[in-house]
């Protein structure tokens, strides 16, 4: 086992740092349904951490707890070595945690560029007055943040559609725009809920490449939920396996793959 405070370097030369986020004994219930039952795991700086499990296992709920969208009945979320007080989702976002959604949650009435720009909102501080006059800070901010948004757009290769309303985009591109919006926030921790669900092989390969590039180039820590085992094995450094709200496995892809409980609960079942 690694010490929580130190880092190491992976085989392909990426730096994995100390623990940034730690879930401690999280339990989440909806009425009678126990969505998460006493689960603990951690996420290290710079790693790609996967959460897998069958449908309804509680994976999305777990990301929602990290995001502050659900408040667990029991347990604590530790962020950067401190217990996190109860927070609204927008406060969590402002701590540098961005995410995408299982069912695309783009702003359909806006263009791609505007959607990506919303990712920059946490960085924009101009007052109402300055905005009303489009002078001073508001104007400067608009230009500066536009540059960052455009870099993300270039990075994800969606320049051609930047002025297109997202409602006109096909599914695969929407998923990519959603990633762009999250990246525009320059997050420390990026949460991806099934980023490749519903994509064809080619789109999946593109998306995998983007995820690896983000992690590699910007050192962004990534927690991702994914169904496709092949993808998970390729991408992730460590994997948490959930089933019926419980954690049944945790370790490197190889360790998890050989865990008998995981094989029984998940890999044996066709999804």
């Amino acid at each position: 086992m690694l010490d929580a405070t130190e880092g190491h370097t992976t085989a392909d030369g990426r730096k994995i740092g100390p623990v940034v986020m730690e879930m401690k004994n999280i339990t989440l219930r909806f009425g009678g349904v126990v969505a998460i039952e006493n689960i603990s795991f951690d996420i290290r700086e710079g790693e790609i951490r996967a959460i897998i499990g069958p449908n309804g296992a509680g994976k999305s709920s777990m990301l929602n707890v990290v995001s502050g969208f659900y408040t667990p009945q029991e347990g604590e979320v530790w962020f950067r070595g401190q217990p996190r007080p109860p927070m609204k989702p927008y406060q969590v976002a402002r701590q540098g945690i961005a995410r995408t959604f299982q069912n695309i949650a783009l702003f359909e009435g806006m263009t791609v560029l505007d959607n990506v720009m919303t990712g920059r909102l946490t960085h924009m501080k101009a007052g109402l007055f300055s905005q009303a006059l489009w002078k001073g800070r508001a104007e400067a901010e608009e230009t500066a943040n536009r540059e960052i948004a455009e870099r993300v757009i270039d990075f994800l290769e969606i320049q051609a559609i930047r002025k297109t309303p997202v409602s006109r985009l096909p599914y695969g591109l929407k998923k990519r725009v959603e990633l762009a919006r999250a990246l525009a926030a320059e997050p420390k921790l990026l949460l991806l809920d099934e980023p490749m669900a519903g994509m064809n092989v080619e789109e999946k390969e593109d998306m995998s490449r983007f995820i690896l590039d983000v992690n590699d180039e910007f050192g962004t820590t990534i927690a991702l939920i994914e169904h496709d085992m092949g993808v998970v094995m390729d991408l992730s450094d460590r994997v948490v396996v959930m089933d019926y709200g419980k954690k049944i496995g945790d370790g490197t892809p190889d360790e998890v793959r050989n865990n008998q409980e995981v094989i029984d609960a998940y890999l044996g079942v066709q999804h």
Partner: peptide, 23 residues
């Protein structure tokens, strides 16, 4: 500008707006 995008985000999908940092 910023305020307009905040409003439109709230309009189009309020929970997503909150999760990207909009109060």
């Amino acid at each position: 500008g910023t305020t307009g995008r905040i409003w439109k985000a709230t309009r189009d999908m309020d929970f997503a707006a909150e999760l990207i940092g909009i109060n």
